[in-house]
Computed example of a mutant assay.
Amino acid sequence: MADTATNPVSLKAAGNFLARQGILVAFVIFMVGFALANDRFLDMDNVLGVVRSSTILGVMALGVTFVVISGNLDLSVGSMMSFSAIVVLDLHDKIGPELAIPAMFIMTMSLGALIGFLVGYLKLNSLIVTLGMLSAIHGLTLTYSGGKNIDIADKEGTWFSIFGQGTALGIPVPILIFLGLAALLSILLTKMPFGRKVYAVGGNGTAATFSGIRRARTVFACYLVSSFCVATAGLIQASRSMGSQNTVGQGMELEVLAAIILGGASLMGGSGTVFKTVIGVLILGFIQNGLLLIGLEFYVQYIVTWIIIILAVWLDIAAKRGRLWSPIA
């Protein structure tokens, strides 16, 4: 009788665990499955290659995590990354990398500040604002470059390539930038007063305002963090290829949101962590790599990614209602 009485409790506990930590369980299952399917999957060169190829997406996702936790969206990051890469490459040959890099960061973060002002202080809908900025920044990029791709003239005589192609202690520099930035932003989000304000604003903006938190300032700061990360991603992209197309970041805003959702952040705001966003980025990267290694065509990854996103959203909803299945069903 005792075992029968405890079974519902055990099942509920298991359901709650899957709802809270399902994405980590899924990550382990995918890694084990692909490792069994192909011996090369866990080869160190392959692992480093996957992580390195995921760094640009990952760096962008770190910043957007702050925006999503605050209860907003940022669909402009793809176009903004294209803009930052084009600007830093163009200015590299005109004023040198020493001045081009800070100039690019200032210009990119100015765009982030504009979005933060519109969403935070004017209280406009973040989806509408950033969707409009996606097109506006793309047009700005084309106008700036005259519709042409940009390449560095003297690729051998510059140290600029270190950000995308360099290594330190045997580890690619892009990975070190990604992990270092993730560690700093994780501390900012979990250990600093600003992080608590971000969670409060995203969880209940009205209550946060009555608690003395300046909601508009917090949202504005989140978009600054996001644009800083986008500028960093643009720097890595430009340094990796030493040239860039005007549309290099096109569509990446959806991949960024996918990684953040996979990491367990709620689009309703108030939940999410930098660590789980990193896990979400790695899941996308390793799934794409694993599917290719087992011989599936690259376009299959889009279907698999869609299934995983649906699963992640389901687990997010389940975590909020305390059960995997709807009580109505």
Rank of each mutant, 00 (worst) to 15 (best):
G234P: 03
K191M: 14
R215L: 11
G212S: 13
G195E: 01
L188W: 07
K191C: 11
T232N: 02
R196H: 11
I261V: 15
S244L: 08
V198H: 00
V225A: 05
R217Y: 06
G243E: 00
V201L: 09
M268A: 15
T190N: 01
F220G: 07
A233F: 09
G264K: 08
I213N: 07
Q245T: 14
P193V: 12
L235E: 01
E255D: 15
V256A: 08
V219W: 02
S244K: 05
V248S: 03
V219A: 02
M252D: 08
G203P: 04
L189H: 03
A221F: 01
Y199C: 04
A216K: 05
T218D: 03
V201R: 03
F228P: 02
S239F: 01
S271V: 13
I213K: 04
C222T: 05
G251C: 10
S226I: 00
G243M: 11
T232S: 03
A216E: 10
F210L: 14
K197F: 01
S227D: 04
M192C: 02
A258L: 14
L224V: 04
L185Y: 01
L254W: 14
R240V: 08
A200W: 12
C222H: 00
S211A: 15
L189A: 06
S266G: 08
A221E: 00
R196I: 05
S241P: 09
V201G: 04
E255I: 10
I213C: 06
P193S: 12
G264Q: 10
G270V: 14
S227C: 03
F210G: 08
T209F: 09
G212L: 11
L185I: 03
Q250D: 14
G263H: 10
L257A: 13
R196P: 00
R196K: 14
G212K: 13
Q237T: 09
A208S: 15
L262N: 14
L262K: 14
M242W: 11
R196V: 00
G212D: 07
S241V: 14
M192I: 09
G269H: 03
K197M: 12
V230Y: 02
G270W: 13
Q250S: 15
V201F: 09
V198N: 06
S211P: 12
G270I: 12
T247C: 10
V230N: 02
R217H: 10
G234L: 04
R196S: 02
S266L: 04
L254F: 15
A221N: 03
L188F: 04
I187E: 04
C229A: 11
E253H: 14
V219M: 00
Q245S: 15
I236S: 01
G264D: 09
R217V: 10
F220P: 00
M268N: 14
L267Q: 08
S226K: 02
I260W: 10
R217Q: 08
V219I: 10
Y199M: 07
A216N: 12
I236D: 04
Q245W: 13
G272N: 09
T273Y: 02
S271Y: 10
S241L: 15
I261S: 12
A216W: 12
A221G: 01
G270R: 13
G243H: 04
A258K: 00
S227H: 05
